[in-house]
Computed example of a mutant assay.
Amino acid sequence: MQQGQSLLHLMSFSNGGYGSAFASAFALTFAVSAGSFTVGSGLGIGGALAKLSKSPWLRVASRSYTTVVRALPELLLLLVAFYAGAPALEALARHAHLVSPTFEFDPFVVAVASLGFIQGAYLTDIFRGAMIAVPAGQIEAAHAFGMSRIQVFARVRLPLAARLALPGVGNIWLNATKDASFISVLGSFSDLLKTSAMAAGATRHYLFFYLVTAAFFLLLSLISMAFFAQLERHANRGVMRAH
């Protein structure tokens, strides 16, 4: 009983407890996940449109983007983007006199953009498949009503594609919550993994703190799955299902 009480004290918000550190780490992990997922969604929609474009240059660029991201380890891409890509952009901006000589990207922004770049490649093919699956009759009917191409995309194709893409998008979000743990290797972030490693190293309760970290990720996953399940039910309301 005393051992159990001492372990619970380690997660308290009082002196000697790591409750505040884990709460901050959980908030950071969620913020990185949400930010990178938002960036990835934008890149995914753009990449899908590029793959469906009539321009061969856009199609080649989009295919190259998805091929490179799929072929290389995600951690390697993150390290290259964080330690090479961001400094290169900073130097280019300084050279072009677009920013001050002391300008530096915020590490959080770089981490979110780097992870979003990775997730965007996977979302590209999800959105592309969803756009292709939109019934042609819906598009033709919209044109028959006199809608422009932009109106057809915004009012018909994109909403229908979003509904069809929801299952795949939900899986990418779950991956985003786990991919956020990669920032623990960047040195300047106290995310869940780094916080658990620091707490475990200081107290020697390795199993306890890693199980606590696993519980946080599991909680986030369960809440996310429940949210996307509700979102799918809402999006598919009124849709006839074959029996």
Rank of each mutant, 00 (worst) to 15 (best):
Q5E: 15
S6Y: 01
L7N: 10
F13L: 12
F22Q: 09
A25F: 09
F26M: 13
A27E: 07
F30E: 07
A31L: 14
G35C: 10
V39E: 01
G42K: 02
I45P: 01
G46T: 06
G47C: 05
L49E: 04
A50Y: 05
L58R: 05
R70I: 03
P73F: 04
L75G: 01
L75A: 06
L76G: 07
L77W: 03
F82L: 02
P87M: 10
L92M: 14
R94D: 00
H97N: 12
F103I: 03
F108R: 06
F108P: 00
A113F: 05
A113P: 04
L115Q: 04
F117T: 01
I118E: 01
I126K: 05
R128C: 08
A133G: 06
Q138K: 06
E140I: 11
H143R: 15
M147V: 02
M147Y: 11
L158I: 00
P159M: 08
L166V: 13
P167K: 11
N171T: 15
W173Q: 09
L174G: 07
L174D: 04
S181E: 08
F182R: 02
V185R: 03
G187W: 06
K194W: 02
A199C: 09
A202E: 12
H205K: 12
Y210M: 06
F216Y: 15
L220N: 10
F228P: 04
F228Q: 09
F228M: 09
G238S: 07
R241S: 14
A242L: 13
H243P: 11
